[in-house]
Design a protein around this nucleic acid. Structure first.
Lengths: 148, 148
DNA sequence: TTGCAGTACTTAGCCTTGCTAACTAATATC
DNA sequence: GATATTAGTTAGCAAGGCTAAGTACTGCAA
């Protein structure tokens, strides 16, 4: 493979995609470190954030989280056990389980978001003005990239 | 909580942190979809990408991946076993283990990246020139934010 | 109406990848 | 030379992915 001082030769778009991917991974790894302080696990917090918009069937939840049914089934069982969600059998189709957040779930989600965002916010605050402007613009661009 | 048309009222840095966090989550969810096709595990691919820039001690690797020593120790053992990396004891300090990619590691990384990055790269390619410039600058800023 | 296929979820059991605690080996320091 | 520190390993736990196989229910067609 050809290389130069900056690493392997590759199209600019690929290198940029690569760095963006890597930055996202490391950003989230940091942010997740505060999750244990909420008493909930990352997967539980993520599921709660999906339930923010209202009750969901376990199937809907699995789709939103992009995981298989057994993963959600186990996650929901534990979340119910510790009181983050409550479940009801759908009266119209008794195969279906609907779950929704409890007040405790809402509190835990709020705290988890607070902590995660706080870590990133602390880093953002250390940027100077032009850097923050550039970041803000780029976040808008990324949001646009993901909208399709 | 007070709100306006853009959501809850909050300092600019917090809003930016929130959007960045959310963008990172959604970006990675997309990229992860192709993971099962790569052949190597996500942690292995990530470690290989760190080794792209040259040999590293296990400690360096752990720091780069933001994980603890035992996690890297086990990962490296498995990667060595399947021939993705090779290790040498540092002659100057015999506590230190240096690892580097093998040719096989380079091949696997190439293929894995291909799959993981393809989605993001496709989106990056749809940006116009100023957008790509802005994104590139911001990725550098995020990398800096995470370096502390 | 019965029986069979499909759907929604659960159970069992595996794997990867985080972690801490406790260890070994090598090096540095007093 | 004794002791502390550093780099990495080992053992063992937990979370959260997965597949395969099972249960309970629904719906449809003979």
């Amino acid at each position: 493979m050809r290389t130069n001082a900056r690493g392997p030769v590759q199209p600019r778009e690929r290198e940029l995609a690569d760095r963006l991917h890597s930055a996202a991974i490391h950003l989230l790894r940091r942010a997740r470190r505060s999750d244990p302080l909420t008493g909930a696990t990352p997967a539980q917090l993520s599921a709660l954030s999906v339930l923010m918009s209202g009750p969901k069937t376990l199937g809907d939840l699995a789709a939103a989280e992009q995981v298989r049914a057994p993963t959600i089934s186990r996650l929901a069982a534990e979340m119910e056990r510790i009181g983050l969600i409550r479940r009801r059998v759908d009266p119209g189709d008794r195969r279906v389980a609907r779950v929704e957040m409890t007040a405790k779930g809402r509190r835990v989600l709020g705290k988890g978001r607070e902590l995660r965002i706080a870590d990133i916010e602390g880093r953002v605050r250390r940027l100077d003005r032009p850097e923050a402007d550039a970041l803000e613009r780029a976040v808008g661009i990324i949001e646009g990239m993901l909208r399709d």
